[in-house]
């Protein structure tokens, strides 16, 4: 005996207490284990899945965005090249149009000038011919007046006068 106390009593299970502990613990286990802990652990597990799903989804979205960004960059580059090309083409077109216009204008002008020259020549010739006719008429009249009767209107005289007129160079 330890100072008047039997330590064995501490180590002897008590029937009533064993009964009550069994009852309370088994009730607790069945009640809480089945109706509270199972849903809780399930909720925790589900949430873990949700979180990991969300994380992988975010990772995917990030990758997609990156891909889209690189796509955008290449698109932008393409667009830039396209626009540069278009600009270059436009410039070339413009240049060609301008030179064409220039050339055609030149041609036109040359044509106009040429036709004008021909016209002028024709006019000049016509004018000269008229002047010659006029001069020959005048000189004939003058000669008629001057010579009067000496000269008849025989063919010999006529051709002579004409040759004279021919010899007169207007210019």
């Amino acid at each position: 005996m330890l100072l008047g106390f039997d330590p064995m009593s501490l180590l002897t299970p008590d029937l009533g207490l064993v009964f009550w502990t069994t009852l309370v613990f088994l009730t607790f286990w069945l009640l809480v284990g089945k109706f509270a802990i199972k849903p809780i652990t399930k909720a925790i597990k589900d949430r873990e899945h949700t979180i990991s799903d969300a994380l992988s989804a975010a990772e995917n979205a990030k990758q997609e965005v990156q891909q889209m960004q690189s796509n955008n960059a290449s698109l932008l580059k393409e667009a830039r090249e396209e626009s540069a090309k278009i600009l270059k083409e436009a410039k070339e077109l413009k240049d060609s149009i301008v030179t064409e216009a220039h050339n055609s204008a030149k041609d036109e002008a040359a044509k106009i000038v040429a036709s004008a020259k021909i016209e002028i020549d024709a006019q000049k010739k016509a004018a000269l011919a008229e002047v010659k006719n006029e001069v020959s008429k005048l000189s004939l009249e003058i000669a008629q007046k001057v010579i009067g009767k000496e000269l008849d209107s025989s063919k010999e005289h006529q051709s002579y006068i004409n040759s004279l007129v021919e010899k007169i160079n207007v210019n």
């Binding site: 005996m1 039997d6 330590p7 064995m8 180590l11």
Partner: peptide
């Protein structure tokens, strides 16, 4: 310890 208690009885 428990054995030492028990032996003490």
């Amino acid at each position: 310890m428990i054995l030492s208690f028990l032996m003490n009885k």
